[in-house]
Design a protein around this nucleic acid. Structure first.
Length: 490
RNA sequence: CGGGGCAUAGCGCAGCCCGGCUAGCGCAUCUGCUUUGGGAGCAGAGGGUCGUAGGUUCGAAUCCUGCUGCCCCGACCA
């Protein structure tokens, strides 16, 4: 078979871009840094949305929607927040065009807005401005809201799914009566994300808190899940922030408690984005294309008929539709591709490129012998089994593929997670091996900054999912409470 | 925003250095026949203001200048 994709080993970036294009997930758009998500890519995103949305609702959250535009003045109310986002905001300054002398259109200078509008890079400010009116009493709390939306961040360099100027995401914004409740919420949502990543996306993640340097602008504490891609680089896959009372104070959101005392509320925010699509692609895919976890695959099973004559074609259609119906009755999404315009080999390659977990090939030979060929995408192996075993086998395979690709990713991460004691060793390892490096750090931003300058590695998180064993910083020799995860990242 | 590269058919490219006949190749598309258990074969056909604006020249895809867009590598970031 002719290689359709760039090889992963040769050029990881190119392989990734190529895959996103050829698997028909997305493409660069005419607008700088933005992306067009194509139907197949969007179908995967919809599966993610559905699973996440259910998890949010199961933990007591409701959806709402807030405006795309945020008055500039809102931004200046929380100092750290402004500083963090100021450099990447798209700003609306005018509201009208007019025809120009040259025959095109130009911005009408008379239509200048009195106050510019910021296209939201995140919605904390407009939401907290709104929450001020929604919250008066402890009876109004907790307020647990999620929004599915697009946001814009004017990044200097963009990359399909991983960092686009506009991206789709969900952002949760909650208000609580006490500090403890808010911290608990932030941690709860971190765990929701971790569970989603592991159970649906089949991506093992490390949970932890961010160092001060990497913290969200305006947060007291940022929790994150970090995944390892196949090239050993880290990808931040989701964040959950404990915002303390910063936004409540900035937007004057107060409530009266049971004792009649007026207090500022405590806040969290948390989000995951279409970046998860990038994580999914870079975690599981191979040189034949996408490998999708059955739990998120828009098509879980594809049936390809193989025939010579019209008579065979008709027989196979009946048999194929019958299998399709049985599988659908079990809630499995099936495509029976009986198009006469493409040949079987072409279809095999196509569905591999698109990551369909299970493929059933059904030919005249099978009808005679009562057999069927079934292939799995993760290992690219195929077997011929009796038709009577088919349904059970499909169910087994969907389950097994989900587990297998998780395990594969888990083993890859384990094999590329290394512990180092000295900074010399660290530098050598980050250059030669990559991956996650567990090392001691004295807890200061200065040391982290120095390491970043010299090695391009950052602290991905201070893990919460392992026991803290104290030691001494690899750079300064000062005491360290526990090892942290260093890596180069996307 | 710095450093590199690219722009020629829907996609991928050659041609450019050294200007010259009708601008070419692969994939894709269309037609016909043969095929169909891993991206089919043969025969034929259609499809281009060579990114854009200007300059040099008898003559520009090719040389020169400006502009625009895209990609890669950095800095920034989810």
């Amino acid at each position: 078979m002719a290689k359709v994709l760039t090889s992963r080993e040769e050029n990881y970036s190119q392989w990734y871009n190529d895959l996103v294009n050829k698997a028909d997930l997305a493409q660069n758009s005419a607008v700088r840094g933005c992306m067009v998500i194509k139907p197949y890519g969007y179908a995967i995103w919809e599966k993610m949305q559905a699973a996440l949305d259910k998890m949010f609702k199961d933990t007591g959250h409701e959806n709402a929607y807030f405006p795309l535009f945020i008055p500039k003045s809102f931004f200046s109310k929380e100092a750290a927040h402004v500083e963090g986002f100021a450099k990447e905001c798209a700003v609306v300054t005018h509201y009208r065009l007019r025809t120009s002398a040259a025959g095109g259109v130009e911005v009408d200078p008379d239509a200048k807005l009195e106050e510019e509008l910021i296209v939201r890079p995140t919605s904390e400010t407009i939401i907290w401005h709104t929450y001020k009116d929604w919250i008066q009493s402890y009876r109004d709390l907790p307020l647990l809201i999620n929004q599915w939306a697009n946001v814009v961040r004017w990044e200097m360099r963009t990359r399909l799914f991983l960092r686009t100027a506009e991206f789709l995401w969900q952002e949760g914004h909650t208000a609580h009566a006490t500090r403890d409740e808010a911290v608990e919420e932030a941690e709860r949502m971190l765990n929701v994300y971790a569970t989603f990543a592991e159970e649906f996306m089949a991506i093992p993640v490390r949970r932890g808190v961010k160092s001060a340097n990497e913290r969200f602008a305006g947060a007291i504490e940022t929790y994150a899940i970090e995944a390892m891609m196949q090239d050993g680089k880290a990808l931040q896959a989701g964040t959950s922030h404990f915002l303390g009372q910063n936004f409540a104070k900035a937007f004057d959101v107060k409530f009266q408690n049971k004792e009649g005392k007026v207090e500022h509320v405590w806040a969290t925010s948390w989000g995951v984005s279409t970046r998860l699509m990038g994580a999914l692609i870079m975690t599981h895919s191979d040189d034949n294309g996408l490998v999708l976890p059955p739990n998120l695959a828009p098509i879980q099973v594809v049936i390809v008929p193989i025939y010579k004559t019209q008579e065979q074609y008709e027989q196979l259609q009946a048999a194929g539709n019958n299998i399709k119906k049985q599988l659908q009755a079990l809630g499995i999404s099936v495509k029976f591709d009986d198009r006469d315009t493409q040949k079987p080999g072409w279809k095999f390659a196509e569905y591999e490129l698109k990551g369909v977990p299970v493929r059933i090939a059904l030919g005249a030979r099978d009808l005679e012998q009562g057999t069927v060929e079934i292939a799995r995408r993760d290992t690219l192996t195929k077997e011929t089994i009796p038709q009577t075993d088919l349904i059970a086998r499909v169910q087994f395979l969907l389950d097994d593929i989900q587990k297998n690709i998780y395990q594969k990713a888990f083993d890859h991460r384990a094999a590329n997670t290394r512990t180092v004691e000295t900074y010399e060793e660290f530098k050598r390892m980050i250059d030669n091996e990559g991956g996650f490096i567990m090392a001691h750090w004295d807890g200061t931003p200065e040391t982290e900054e120095l390491i970043k300058e010299e090695t391009k590695a950052t602290i991905r998180c201070i893990p919460l999912d392992e026991e803290a064993v104290p030691g001494f910083c690899m750079v300064t020799g000062k005491p360290s409470a526990q090892r942290v995860i260093f890596a180069r990242s996307y």
